[in-house]
Write a protein that binds this DNA or RNA. Structure first.
Length: 497
DNA sequence: GCGGATCAC
DNA sequence: TATGGTGATCCGC
């Protein structure tokens, strides 16, 4: 009933189907119990439950009539959103399979047949598929992972190496299209539209310009053997199901081409890196991303650029697979018995009263299968830069309630690091923020906007120290003398470049 | 503009 | 023993 939280397994990742969640969650809770992290997570969980219950009360107060009224109003928005639908682009989401773990397995064959993860005892970056069978996954502390899987091998990460491999991957992709953008070292959106168009035979020259049957068999005939045996091929057969009429045959042709282009791209990535990638092929980034997960690992899935096909696809989609819907949204939605994307449309009249206009619009766009269809553009410039560090618990104030020397040293180091990074990109910003995570895991942030942009270590440190002083004074208000504010993380950020 | 929250990777 | 770092965005003041 209650949604996932920081103390339960998030099994949304590929390779984690059919696990014994009960048992795994018990072990996770057992390992966490009593810790400050656990207490904080429990507190947050209770707060969320309260908000959910408050929302349910609001829901109860809504009359059928007022809901109906909103439905009608929202139908205008749905129509407006529908009018923006553009299925003309071939957007591909390429996602490396268990990237960091795969690199380590490639370079050390002894790791190939054992459950392993990359990271340390306090945090894992990723795990291989064997480890996922035990519930071991990214963002899980290593010591808990060890309880779930005592034989787990944890290898320290090597970011420089992953970065170098990532460059190789980008090089391969750039041979296909210049329109791509990397979301991380292992995840890229590509726009293959031009390439597909250049490779597509015009319909009048297409020899299979006959029945959908003909095209279907021709599709198979032209596919290289490696593609036919691809784990995604069986799913892809549905791509021609809704083909009617000659204009649709054109689409089939386009789908066939993009399918083969992406299979070729994945093959080239594997040749260059000995690592496998999965891909989602669709007409916008939202759908492509969802699709890239469906035939993981080492597979691809194509969703036809056909309105009915897209609507059917998103309707049955699990709400937690939607990028942008995290554990909190999921808690709200599941309390409303919204578990599939189709439920969003069915309950649109309710949503209108419980969420902001922006959120409702996002939900409706999602239910229509709409999303961005440009991958690069959109101001690739960064808008903020930050540096933060977690350390063993540290007093923020000294016996005179001034900033402790340790915290001042930390602030100085962070300011220097940030100033160097800013300098490397020739950036300077007007707004300075500090972030403090207390030993209780509570997070506090303070910021100030200057009248001019700054970038030097000294300037940043001066403002940041002032902010930290103000925060300390605020937090010591009404506290007995001898009270110590204890922190586990300090961060500095610059923005408004 | 600010501070808290949420989300992704 | 032990629960990350970076960047973006949104909401309600």
């Amino acid at each position: 009933m209650t949604g996932p939280n920081s103390l339960t397994l998030n099994d949304g990742k590929a390779g984690m189907e059919g696990l014994d969640k009960e048992r795994i969650n018990k072990i996770i809770r057992e390992a966490s119990k009593g810790s400050k992290f656990f207490q904080h997570a429990e507190k947050k969980e209770k707060e969320l439950q309260c908000k959910v219950e408050k929302m349910l009360l609001e829901r109860k107060a809504l009359s059928d009539q007022v809901i109906k009224q909103s439905e009608v109003e929202l139908d205008a928005l749905v129509a407006r959103l529908e009018s923006t639908r553009d299925m003309s682009r071939d957007i591909v989401h390429v996602d490396m399979d268990a990237f960091y773990a795969a690199v380590e397995m490639r370079d050390n064959p002894a790791l190939k047949d054992v459950p392993m993860a990359v990271g340390g005892s306090s945090m894992l970056s990723t795990s291989n598929y064997l480890a996922r069978r035990y519930g071991v996954r990214a963002a899980m502390p290593g010591f808990i992972a060890k309880k779930l899987c005592p034989d787990l091998v944890i290898v320290p990460g090597n970011h420089d190496k992953y970065s170098a491999v990532s460059s190789q991957i980008m090089d391969v992709i750039s041979k296909y299209t210049t329109e791509f953008s990397a979301m991380s070292l292992d995840e890229v959106y590509c726009d293959m539209t031009e390439l597909v168009q250049n490779r597509t035979v015009p319909p009048e020259l297409c020899p299979e310009h006959g029945s959908p049957e003909t095209v279907e068999s021709a599709t198979r005939g032209r596919s290289p053997a490696s593609v036919q045996t691809d784990s995604g091929q069986s799913k892809s057969e549905s791509k021609n199901e809704s083909s009617h009429g000659s204009s649709i045959l054109c689409w089939c042709r386009r789908e066939n081409v993009v399918w083969n282009v992406v299979a070729e791209l994945r093959g080239d990535i594997e040749l260059a890196t000995q690592l496998t990638a999965s891909a989602g092929l669709s007409c916008n980034t939202f759908l492509a991303k969802v699709c890239s997960d469906l035939n993981k690992p080492n597979g691809q899935y194509l969703l036809s650029p056909d309105r009915e096909t897209v609507l059917d696809f998103v309707a049955q989609l699990d709400i937690k697979k939607v990028p942008g819907i995290g554990r909190v949204q999921q808690a709200y939605l599941s309390a409303l018995e919204i578990n599939k994307v189709s439920d969003l449309i069915a309950q649109r009249g309710v949503l209108a009263h419980l969420f902001t206009a922006g959120t409702v619009q996002f939900y409706l766009a999602t239910a229509l299968g709409l999303g961005s269809n440009q991958v690069s553009s959109e101001e690739g410039k960064c808008k903020s830069m930050s540096t933060e560090n977690t350390f063993t618990d540290m007093d923020v104030n000294d016996e005179n309630n001034k900033l402790s020397p340790e915290i001042k040293t930390m602030l100085s180091e962070l300011s220097a690091t940030l100033a160097n990074r800013l300098k490397a990109e020739n950036l300077a910003g007007e707004t300075i923020s500090i972030k403090l995570k207390l030993a209780t895991f509570e997070i506090l942030q303070r910021s100030r906007t200057q009248t001019h942009a700054i970038s030097s270590k000294e300037d940043i440190e001066l403002v940041a120290r002032d902010l930290l002083n103000l925060l300390l004074r605020e937090k010591l208000e009404g506290k007995p003398s001898g009270f110590r504010l204890t922190a586990r993380l300090l961060g500095v950020r610059v923005n408004k470049f």
